[in-house]
């Protein structure tokens, strides 16, 4: 019993870290651009499908390019569409990104068909590992390692690099960043691109775990919203804690009350928001209220 709980908890951690990866991308887009990106899940799906195609045609090393290409697509989308709605009514951003999400899903359906597509993990990652009572697939172990490494690297990027400084500063006062001579339009495109890159990376990693179908976007965007809201809009550590909380909650409900696994994270979100209106670590930013 304990073995099962521990193993499931670790599965929950894997899921949680994956969600955190997606949520961080959503959060920096929120923080800097002030946009609710409903299309974030669609970029997740794009990453997954790109990984599939690249793997099929050029092997799994090529599949590692999928997140980068997703990021570049994000930059193009920002320059062509998203930048026109900065500062306008939030409802317009909602409609635009929502339509964009369904548009990308429709394109994926066009290119790959609506049916699920099989995508197996690379051969060298198949099989299990055992650490005491915990039993885990090798691929899940790999996902766990990669996401943790990426999250640490991203944190270091935010903390120590000039661009990271710009993102942190811009989430508090984008106008002042511009007054310091920093080319804001390019920064905004870059931030959107980085957010999409993280979503695409999540997609690439999740592809062998989840069913690869155009509607997989929903499985990414909704947890991302929940995590960003629970953790607090604009909080990096909040997103991590919230992500792990959601991941473990879902894993546990799958094990013990599977019918509730779908609703579990929403109930968690509703409960937390009612007690702490700005999430666990959220700050009072007029932009979101």
């Amino acid at each position: 019993m304990l073995d099962m709980i521990l193993s499931q908890a670790v599965n929950g951690l894997v899921l949680g870290f994956l969600y955190v990866l997606i949520a961080i991308g959503l959060s920096i887009i929120f923080g800097m651009l002030g946009i609710v990106n409903f299309a974030h899940g669609a970029f997740f799906a794009v990453g997954a499908y790109l990984a599939y195609s690249l793997n099929k045609n050029f092997g799994w090393t090529a599949a590692l390019l999928a997140p980068i290409i997703t990021g570049l697509i994000g930059v193009v989308v920002e320059m062509v569409l998203v930048r026109w709605i900065y500062g306008k009514e939030p409802l317009l951003g909602l409609i635009l990104t929502f339509a964009l999400a369904l548009f990308i899903e429709a394109i994926l359906r066009l290119l790959y068909g609506g049916a699920p597509v099989p995508f197996a993990a690379p051969k060298f990652l198949s099989g299990f590992v055992e650490y005491g009572p915990v039993l885990l697939t090798k691929y899940r172990m790999f996902v766990l390692i990669v996401t943790v490494v990426v999250l640490i690297a991203f944190w270091a990027f935010l903390a120590y690099t000039p661009y990271g400084r710009i993102i942190r500063a811009g989430s508090r006062d984008p106008e002042m960043v511009g007054l310091l001579g920093i080319n804001l339009p390019i920064v905004f495109s870059g931030v959107f691109g980085v957010g999409c890159l993280l979503a695409g990376l999540g997609g690439m990693l999740a592809a062998p775990l989840w069913t690869l179908q155009p509607s997989m976007a929903a499985g990414a965007i909704m947890p991302a919203f929940v995590i960003v809201t629970i953790g607090g809009l604009g909080s990096y550590s909040g997103a991590i804690i919230a992500g792990l909380l959601v991941g473990i909650t879902i894993a546990m409900t799958i094990q013990f009350q599977p019918e509730w696994s779908g609703a579990a994270m929403y109930i968690l979100m509703a409960l937390i928001l009612l007690v702490r209106p700005r999430g666990l670590f959220g700050e009072k930013w007029e932009r979101f209220e």
Binding site: W260, G262, A263, M269
Partner: peptide, 23 residues
């Protein structure tokens, strides 16, 4: 709650209702 939090909470309730109806 105000603004975006209100909007997302309504969505959460709709999803909870969906899960109940679906399962």
């Amino acid at each position: 709650r105000k603004g975006l939090y209100f909007s997302l909470l309504t969505l959460a309730f709709s999803q909870i209702a969906f899960e109940i109806a679906f399962k």
